[in-house]
Design a protein around this nucleic acid. Structure first.
Length: 263
DNA sequence: ACCTAAACCTGGGCGC
DNA sequence: TGCGCCCAGGTTTAGG
């Protein structure tokens, strides 16, 4: 599933492949997945590719931006052949194409005015992301102390912290030795420091390995990431030490942990 | 105001 | 072999 490392990998791919190109046509196969008037972007040139949390922003030279959320099964592939899951196709003036595939049709594209993006995706909607200057131990202490929700749910709450989904939340908690169901309030200062480092480590590893493709994620060239080759617990039966991994439901999501390594 | 559950979708895997 | 049920999880919305 696309989380910070996966979406960031695609953002880099967009920067390399489509910045500088002019949009000639947009073919929308599933209308509900595309919000806005395609005429507002046809003829415009792409000047930048950005990312806020798990959302991509393609900045155009006419004052508009295209926001894209991949949700669970979205794929953005440049120069690929279409398949039965192709939902939206961008054709550029040089006849090359950017294909959006999405098996489950949860993803969306939305045309917005570029100067309204900060309002839509501002800090009040998306908290600091791992690696940013505001992602500090002090900040984590502050948000954790206010809730008894399971720590895993807090890590995945985009309002408090942005970019973390199920894969990296499970792995970070394993590395930090903290049980996913622990009330956020119950974490000691030492555990919070350890968890911060663990989060930054798994996100960095995700980026290094080009994301996780346990499901449908692929990069801009249609190639899979390799993070799941090194994932600690997510969708595993055994942890790196050979211990059995338990699976429970937390906040309606599959949650993986080792009861020996995590307290 | 708070939290939980359901909804959005579809293919793959599993059980019978 | 085949049918049908259940599961996967980011985010929003509805309900309690």
């Amino acid at each position: 599933v696309p989380e910070l490392p996966e979406v960031e990998t695609i953002k880099k791919g967009l920067s390399n492949k489509i910045v500088g190109k002019k949009i000639a046509d947009v073919d929308i196969r599933v209308p509900k997945m595309f919000m806005g008037n395609p005429r507002d972007i046809c003829g415009a040139k792409i000047v930048d590719a950005k990312r806020v949390a798990k959302i991509l922003e393609i900045v155009l030279d006419n004052g508009y931006s295209i926001l894209i959320h991949l949700k669970l099964t979205g794929q953005l592939i440049y120069g690929a052949r279409e398949n039965s899951f192709t939902r939206i196709v961008y054709t550029f003036s040089d006849k090359t194409k950017l294909i959006f595939n999405d098996l489950r049709k949860f993803g969306w594209h939305k045309i917005v005015k570029s100067d309204e993006v900060m309002k839509l995706l501002g800090p009040d909607k998306y908290g600091p992301e791992p690696g940013s200057k505001d992602f500090t131990v002090e900040y984590l202490k502050q948000i954790f102390s206010k809730t008894i929700k399971p720590i895993k749910s807090v890590l995945m709450d985009q309002v408090r912290i942005s970019g973390i989904g199920n894969i990296y939340a499970n792995d970070a908690l394993y590395l930090a030795g903290i049980l996913p169901a622990r009330p956020a309030k119950s974490l000691s200062d030492k555990e919070i420091s350890k968890l911060k480092l663990a989060i930054e480590k798994v996100i960095a590893l995700g980026l290094k390995y080009g994301g996780s493709s346990e499901n449908t994620y692929v990069n801009i060239e249609g190639k899979k990431g390799r993070y799941m080759e090194i994932t600690a617990v997510y969708q595993k039966k055994k942890d790196p030490k050979g211990h059995d991994i338990k699976k429970i439901q937390l906040g309606g999501r599959g949650t993986f942990f080792c009861s020996l390594c995590q307290k």
